[in-house]
């Protein structure tokens, strides 16, 4: 079972690396925001996975819901500032 979890953890971490590439190389700010958003969704999945590993899914699901809400609010805040600054996707 531990091997299985390790495999899943590694795979999702590699997926995070793909998003990370977009955060580093993204030509515009929007690519970077989207990349960060993707990383945080992977973080949410990983949190539930860790909760399953500790056999305390009930607690970790609450926390990952909080993460998801925060993620939404953060992305909205960033988008708001970009709008105020007059940045537009090219």
């Amino acid at each position: 079972m531990n091997t299985f979890f390790f495999f899943v953890l590694t795979t999702i971490t590699i997926l995070m690396l793909v998003y990370f590439y977009r955060v580093v190389r993204g030509p515009s700010v929007f690519d970077r925001v989207l990349g960060l958003n993707g990383i945080s969704t992977k973080a949410i999945v990983l949190l539930v996975l860790i909760g399953t590993m500790f056999e305390r899914v009930d607690m970790f699901v609450d926390i990952s819901t909080g993460y998801a809400l925060l993620n939404l609010v953060g992305a909205l805040a960033i988008a708001k500032f970009l709008e105020e600054r007059g940045e537009s996707p090219k």
Partner: peptide, 25 residues
């Protein structure tokens, strides 16, 4: 600097996952 800011954000997410893995939720 803008990409540095977003990379720091992703660093924080990974660090949060490490904390969760250590049990400090």
């Amino acid at each position: 600097l803008i990409s540095a800011v977003f990379i720091l954000g992703s660093y924080s997410f990974v660090l949060a996952l490490v904390w969760a893995l250590l049990g400090a939720v």
